[in-house]
Amino acid sequence: MKPETEGELAEVVAGLSGPVRIVGGGTRDVTGSEPILNTAGLSGITLYEPGALTLVAQAGTPVAEIEAALEAEGQQLAFEPMDHRGLMGTSGEPTIGGVVAANISGPRRIQAGACRDFLLGVRYVDGCGQIVKNGGRVMKNVTGYDLVKLMAGSWGTLGVLSQVSLKVLPKPEATLTLAVHVQNAKTAIQALSVALSSPFEVSAAAYDPQYSSALLRLEGFADSVTYRETRLRSELANFGEFTEVQDPVSQWRSIRDVSAFQGSDGDVWRISVKPSDASEIATRAEAEKTIFDWGGGLVWALVPKGTDLRKRLRAFQGHATLVRADTDTVRTLGRFQPESVGVAALTRGLRQKFDPRGIFNPDLMG
């Protein structure tokens, strides 16, 4: 099933007699036995106003198409969404609907915010086949239910996105990335924390153990970047030696897309924690490889196939998501962190209202 208009999508959903699996570009390898409802036919930028920093696109529009249009005007998606293809070993094209549905956000999240923070409006089809519109094309306070934020990160379990409206931002005039050479993860997280708590507007902070360097990105006007670099070097002088990364675009793309895990056997977990707990969590994980992003708030872990990482981590403040594993492991362990009793009840209630027939990705979130 591959509708090409919102009306066709509504007709398809209204006529469904059983569950379906919603797919955009198919880059995140969310498998299942249900028939596929593919949104890639709903493609194209329908409105772009560079002066208003606003873009509207159908859900199946390739992210690359949107980035190319923005690049021509010196603008960008500030939340720099991850490309999962290398990590997952998949093909296809990432779509903007898939990015919004999973709230995919890259290294700049710590400064600019997540994908949902740039989402102005959505159009989607609910489980009864009704077309629903919420939000608009400008940033403003609204009354009523903020379904825009609710749809971001719902993974297609509440409705099928047909169109999204996004706020975009100008690209920075200058970008510089510093590498602070450190001895271990604990020291790296301390350095990242000091940098992020400083007034020098660090736009990305990560640590890749294979390079033994804490990475810090500065963006903005050239004079400002130069000044902040000097001050940041002074603030972090006791942590280790500094070098400037010569190809920062590739470096942050590598962090964003978890390139260090690509081509490696094993399961991949994404762990969200307090940055102060990151090094301890990484030790408990006993992972073959780790990468720290968001100042330590996001830990990527590569572990042997079939490892129950949640059991290994024991109780902790955060959640562990199984991003890459075979079907049996996903079925046994569950892709997402189990919800508390109260939250699970709220989730069931929301899904019952949005999708009373239970047809959208029924087993994805438990």
Rank of each mutant, 00 (worst) to 15 (best):
G295F: 01
R233L: 04
T327H: 14
T327D: 15
E280F: 03
V341Y: 03
T347K: 09
A287R: 01
T327Y: 14
R310G: 06
E235H: 10
W294M: 00
F261N: 06
V273C: 10
E241V: 09
Q251E: 13
R331Q: 14
I281L: 07
L346D: 04
G306Y: 11
F336M: 04
W294P: 04
R312L: 02
K305S: 15
L350V: 05
A237D: 15
L333H: 05
T347L: 02
T327M: 11
E288L: 00
A320C: 15
E286L: 00
D277M: 06
F261T: 09
T283P: 08
K311M: 07
L333T: 05
W294F: 13
P248C: 04
A345Y: 03
E244R: 08
Q262E: 15
K305C: 12
A325V: 00
A325Q: 07
R270P: 05
V268I: 13
Q251R: 06
L302Q: 13
Q337K: 07
R335N: 06
D326R: 02
D257I: 07
T332S: 15
S259L: 04
S264T: 03
G334T: 00
S340M: 10
H319W: 04
T243A: 13
K289V: 00
Q317L: 00
A315P: 12
P338Q: 14
L333P: 09
A287H: 00
K311G: 09
D267P: 11
V343A: 14
L313S: 03
D257R: 01
S279N: 06
G334P: 11
S250Q: 11
G342R: 09
V303D: 11
G263S: 13
W269M: 01
S340E: 07
F336N: 05
A287K: 03
G342I: 04
F292S: 02
